[in-house]
Simulated scan of single mutants.
Amino acid sequence: MGAFVYILECADGSFYVGSTRNLELRLAQHNSGRGSVYTSARLPVRLAYHQECESIDVAFALEKRIQNWSRAKRLALIEGRLDDLPMLSKKGRRG
Protein backbone atom coordinates (compact mmCIF):
# COMPACT_ATOMS: atom_id res chain seq x y z
CA MET A 1 0.00 0.00 0.00
CA GLY A 2 1.33 3.45 -0.93
CA ALA A 3 1.79 6.43 1.30
CA PHE A 4 2.61 10.11 1.02
CA VAL A 5 4.89 12.68 2.53
CA TYR A 6 3.37 16.16 2.33
CA ILE A 7 4.05 19.80 3.12
CA LEU A 8 1.24 22.13 4.12
CA GLU A 9 1.48 25.89 3.97
CA CYS A 10 -0.33 27.35 6.97
CA ALA A 11 -2.24 30.64 7.04
CA ASP A 12 0.72 32.31 8.80
CA GLY A 13 3.08 31.26 6.00
CA SER A 14 4.80 28.54 8.00
CA PHE A 15 5.16 24.97 6.78
CA TYR A 16 4.03 21.70 8.33
CA VAL A 17 5.51 18.39 7.16
CA GLY A 18 3.65 15.10 7.61
CA SER A 19 3.09 11.63 6.22
CA THR A 20 -0.04 9.57 5.68
CA ARG A 21 -1.59 6.69 3.82
CA ASN A 22 -4.64 8.78 2.80
CA LEU A 23 -3.67 12.27 1.65
CA GLU A 24 -7.20 13.52 0.92
CA LEU A 25 -8.51 12.47 4.34
CA ARG A 26 -5.47 13.86 6.14
CA LEU A 27 -5.78 17.24 4.43
CA ALA A 28 -9.47 17.39 5.42
CA GLN A 29 -8.51 16.54 9.01
CA HIS A 30 -5.95 19.35 9.10
CA ASN A 31 -8.40 21.90 7.68
CA SER A 32 -11.09 20.90 10.17
CA GLY A 33 -8.71 21.49 13.09
CA ARG A 34 -8.25 17.78 13.84
CA GLY A 35 -4.92 17.27 12.05
CA SER A 36 -2.40 18.50 14.58
CA VAL A 37 -2.07 21.05 17.35
CA TYR A 38 0.33 23.03 15.16
CA THR A 39 -1.96 23.33 12.14
CA SER A 40 -5.15 23.79 14.17
CA ALA A 41 -3.78 27.14 15.36
CA ARG A 42 -2.82 28.21 11.83
CA LEU A 43 -5.90 27.53 9.68
CA PRO A 44 -6.58 27.32 6.87
CA VAL A 45 -3.81 25.20 5.42
CA ARG A 46 -3.15 24.33 1.80
CA LEU A 47 -1.26 21.43 0.28
CA ALA A 48 1.99 22.87 -1.05
CA TYR A 49 3.79 19.62 -1.92
CA HIS A 50 3.30 15.88 -1.84
CA GLN A 51 5.26 12.86 -2.93
CA GLU A 52 4.04 9.29 -3.13
CA CYS A 53 6.24 6.69 -1.44
CA GLU A 54 6.26 2.90 -1.60
CA SER A 55 5.31 2.49 2.08
CA ILE A 56 4.38 4.46 5.17
CA ASP A 57 7.82 3.65 6.62
CA VAL A 58 9.53 5.32 3.66
CA ALA A 59 7.14 8.30 3.82
CA PHE A 60 7.73 8.71 7.58
CA ALA A 61 11.52 8.59 7.15
CA LEU A 62 11.33 11.25 4.42
CA GLU A 63 9.01 13.34 6.63
CA LYS A 64 11.60 13.32 9.43
CA ARG A 65 14.34 14.25 6.99
CA ILE A 66 12.40 17.20 5.52
CA GLN A 67 11.45 18.42 9.01
CA ASN A 68 15.14 19.12 9.61
CA TRP A 69 15.48 21.21 6.45
CA SER A 70 15.65 24.99 6.34
CA ARG A 71 12.73 27.02 5.01
CA ALA A 72 14.79 27.81 1.89
CA LYS A 73 15.37 24.12 1.20
CA ARG A 74 11.68 23.29 1.72
CA LEU A 75 10.74 26.09 -0.70
CA ALA A 76 13.15 24.71 -3.29
CA LEU A 77 11.48 21.29 -3.00
CA ILE A 78 7.98 22.81 -3.24
CA GLU A 79 8.99 24.87 -6.28
CA GLY A 80 10.63 21.88 -7.98
CA ARG A 81 14.14 23.34 -7.84
CA LEU A 82 15.68 19.97 -7.05
CA ASP A 83 19.11 20.99 -8.36
CA ASP A 84 19.26 23.62 -5.58
CA LEU A 85 18.76 21.11 -2.75
CA PRO A 86 22.42 20.10 -2.29
CA MET A 87 23.54 23.74 -2.19
CA LEU A 88 20.91 24.49 0.46
CA SER A 89 22.03 21.68 2.74
CA LYS A 90 23.59 22.79 6.02
CA LYS A 91 26.85 21.10 5.02
CA GLY A 92 26.77 22.72 1.60
CA ARG A 93 26.23 26.32 2.68
CA ARG A 94 29.03 28.77 2.16
CA GLY A 95 29.71 31.94 4.11
Rank of each mutant, 00 (worst) to 15 (best):
Y6S: 04
G18W: 06
K64T: 01
V37S: 11
S14H: 10
N31Q: 10
L43M: 11
L62I: 13
A11P: 04
E24G: 10
D57L: 12
R74S: 02
R46W: 04
T39Q: 01
S55Q: 05
Y16V: 03
A72L: 12
S40H: 08
A28G: 12
L75A: 03
A59V: 12
L25Q: 14
G92W: 05
A3N: 07
E79N: 15
C10E: 01
C53N: 08
K90F: 01
R74Y: 03
Q29C: 13
L88F: 07
V37Q: 11
C53R: 15
V37P: 04
V17R: 06
E54D: 12
E24N: 11
R65E: 00
G95H: 09
E52Q: 15
F4M: 00
N31L: 08
L88R: 09
D57I: 05
G80V: 04
Y49F: 15
E79L: 10
G80R: 10
D83C: 07
L47F: 00
R65P: 05
G13W: 13
L25F: 08
A28T: 07
L75T: 08
V58K: 15
R94N: 06
G13K: 13
K73Q: 13
H50A: 02
R21P: 00
L27C: 07
R21D: 00
L85I: 15
A76V: 10
L23D: 02
E79H: 14
E54P: 06
E63M: 09
R21L: 09
L25R: 15
K91L: 09
S40I: 06
S55W: 06
L8D: 02
S14M: 07
A61M: 09
K90M: 05
F60W: 11
F4W: 14
E63Q: 15
L23P: 10
Q51V: 02
K64E: 03
Q51H: 13
E54W: 04
G18H: 06
R94V: 13
F15Q: 05
V58T: 14
K73P: 01
I78Y: 01
V17Q: 02
S36V: 11
C10F: 00
A48P: 04
K64Q: 14
I78L: 03
